[in-house]
Nucleic acid binder design. Structure first.
Lengths: 147, 147
DNA sequence: ACACTAATTATAACTATTATTAATTAATAA
DNA sequence: TTATTAATTAATAATAGTTATAATTAGTGT
């Protein structure tokens, strides 16, 4: 199924007239295959083996291209660097405040609040962003043991 | 009423043992009084008149102190710099993707989704973050006129 | 095969933020 | 009020993420 995602992504690039270079192929492949939500630098390091002389700028450039085409979402948390997420179906993020782990979860619709906000503010609504912060099971275990 | 907010904030500092310096007083005052959600640099520039030789580092330091004490929330969007919001009662942000304007709005509860997410992921939930993106009325007008 | 355009690489530049350090100042108690 | 002391400030340097630039390379269409 991640094969399909990759194929769909490549098709999207083709129809939008974005060249499919080996670097782009590799970045997309890595983004789809990984469960993490990597930073640009992590992607860069992960592909160092395959592309010994790829530039960090290439990673940033291509992530921007993917974002503009709608294949990738940029997530900015408090910490220094952005994280990148391959866009599949809509999901939200549960983030551990202790170790930084990010877990995806699905939830039906927040159409209601979008509607409400639109009414109250007079904005046209395009999208929303929701994150939930807490402590993940393994961090709970650790702190329980310490006590 | 913003007077009360300021007094409450100063009390909070006192009880948590944080010194009340003129700079801190001014930063808090500015944060409470402004409707915008300023960046550290904007705060710095706004107070330049009153404190001709205040350092940017002071602004950052104090914003961190305020955040640690719970008086201030740090908002990170896609753009380069964080924005800071004085914590009053819970509210969400509606953000214009065209001009960057941020409008606060209130909405009862998203307890349900917190509960759901906790069940699904096994996390203990502390808080959540929700933003809605769209186009503000005045940006709508502009684009309508251009057409 | 050739010309043309886009993408990559390497590097420099930029910007937001943090660390460092010496000088200053607010709170406290004598 | 004054002295004391630890916290805070200001100035500056350092760091890190990201973007811009310019030269080179790779694709694409004719």
């Amino acid at each position: 199924m991640s094969e399909t995602h990759l194929q769909d992504a490549l098709d999207t690039l083709k129809t939008t007239g974005v060249r499919i270079t080996p670097q782009r192929h590799a970045i997309l492949e890595y983004l789809i295959q990984t469960m993490a939500h990597p930073t640009a630098d992590e992607i860069y390091k992960a592909l160092e083996g395959k592309f010994p002389n790829m530039s960090v700028a290439t990673v940033y450039n291509n992530l921007r291209v993917f974002r503009e085409v709608g294949l990738v979402k940029e997530l900015t948390f408090g910490d220094a660097s952005s994280r990148f997420d391959f866009v599949t179906n809509d999901h939200y993020h549960m983030i551990c405040e202790c170790c930084g782990k990010i877990v995806d979860f699905h939830y039906p619709g927040l159409d209601e609040i979008e509607h409400f906000a639109s009414q109250v503010t007079g904005f046209d609504v395009h999208s929303h962003r929701l994150e939930i912060y807490g402590t993940c099971p393994s961090c709970k275990d650790v702190s329980a043991k310490v006590q």
